[in-house]
Design a protein around this nucleic acid. Structure first.
Ligand code: MN
Ligand code: MN
Ligand code: MN
Ligand code: MN
Lengths: 219, 219
DNA sequence: ATAAATTTTTAGGCAAATCTAAAAATGAAT
DNA sequence: ATTCATTTTTAGATTTGCCTAAAAATTTAT
């Protein structure tokens, strides 16, 4: 199946919006995510349906068909591999790579994808801690535990970020927090749930909102 | 200037057809190279002219304007850098990389291009021995001497291939000839100008046609 | 110098992906 | 159960890149 760039982006958008529960996705949600108009989305949904990539009933919503999901995951795999390449091999900052990977993910060559994965040491997670599906589309397991759920006295490892906006990524980088770092919860302010943390020997204060966007694992 | 993929391919096609002498390029030549129709080319030439990227007079021909040439060389730089990456880092064969580089060359990010160049050690020549222009668009010098011009007794170094077709690249690879190898001319058959060569200790026979497509330098 | 062949452009269309504006369906509120 | 608001689709255009067929210009041959 030879997809256009636009079709690939629609599949990926539907994949993300529908989430792990594979919910029905609204036309407007797709339009907003792709920064386009609802009428444009309707056109594309009919096209994707005709190609058998989604199930779509007018006014009801859309969800990925099996083929569509396979393709979406394939594009996601490429996206995250390229992001890893850019950070690990070309020394890009983790806030710079998404935009470039949005282009690279559309390069068609399964041999390239697999050679790249191998060159990178078959990474399981991308620079933001997001799981990279393997060639068969299977994701490595990751606890979806965020820092705000931790308790005083916990010793934790930083596993990823939930919010991958440039602003948040820059903020986390400025704090010196990197994936794999260990953090100890020293206290939680009951007024606003902000946290006092020990990180690399020094003490940090993070808002509840920031904590809710950092993935961690226990010990 | 934000170019479409099609526009970039036209600029590159005109660049190659016009050659180092910057000759006027015919509509049909562009159509043939891009595997499209003359009428389509005419449309695009008017568009590129309006953008100031080419000078074009109906029925006369087209040539790149300064901006157009700069852009074409920039795409060529990316193409050859990606080819180098694929061969050097991902162990692709030199006959496989052109097609993939045709896609990668359109990825827009000057930071990516320069990081990639740096990662590769700022190579001067691509896997086919073709010169890689630097960031300013300046090409490294290469003698355009081919093996068929050499004489008996010459000691030579293989510098590149003139014909980059998959067939020829496979043939040269099968012979075991690689860039940088040294070759000694043992004899030239006066009947058909085929050459008897010493390469890596053994003796090779190459047709005049093959020899005319191998770039060499003297000692 | 004409005629024939070739090249190039023009005319008219088509498919993909987008838009705006209007109509229709759905869902929420009285 | 109507009415109102929101969501979604339809209708009608636009732009880009491509096509075929016909016309026009240029080049080549007689
Ligand atoms: Mn990303
Ligand atoms: Mn990522
Ligand atoms: Mn190439
Ligand atoms: Mn090359």
């Amino acid at each position: 199946m030879q997809l256009s760039l636009a079709e690939e982006n629609y599949l990926k958008a539907i994949y993300f919006i529908s989430g792990p529960e594979r919910n029905l996705v609204n036309t407007n949600a797709v339009a907003e995510r792709l920064d386009t108009k609802a009428a444009t989305v309707t056109d594309m949904l009919r096209k994707l349906k005709k190609k058998g990539l989604v199930s779509y009933e007018p006014y009801k919503g859309v969800r990925l068909a099996e083929t569509g999901e396979k393709l979406a995951i394939g594009i996601l795999r490429k996206h995250r591999l390229w992001e890893t390449f850019l950070v690990e091999k070309l020394s890009f900052g983790w806030e710079e790579v998404h935009e470039i990977a949005e282009q690279l993910e559309h390069v068609r060559s399964s041999k390239l994808t697999e050679r790249l994965a191998n060159f990178l040491g078959n990474p399981q997670f991308d620079p933001h801690g997001d799981p990279i599906p393997n060639k068969e589309g299977v994701f490595p397991r990751r606890e979806n535990l965020t820092l705000d759920k931790a308790e005083v006295g916990d010793f934790l490892l930083v596993k990823g970020v939930k919010d991958s906006s440039v602003d948040f990524l820059n903020y986390v980088a400025k704090l010196g927090i990197r994936l794999g770092d260990s953090i100890e919860v020293m206290g939680v302010e009951s007024f606003d749930q902000s946290m006092k943390l020990k990180h690399e020997g020094s003490v940090l204060h993070l808002s509840a909102m920031a904590c809710a966007n950092i993935y961690i694992s226990r010990g």
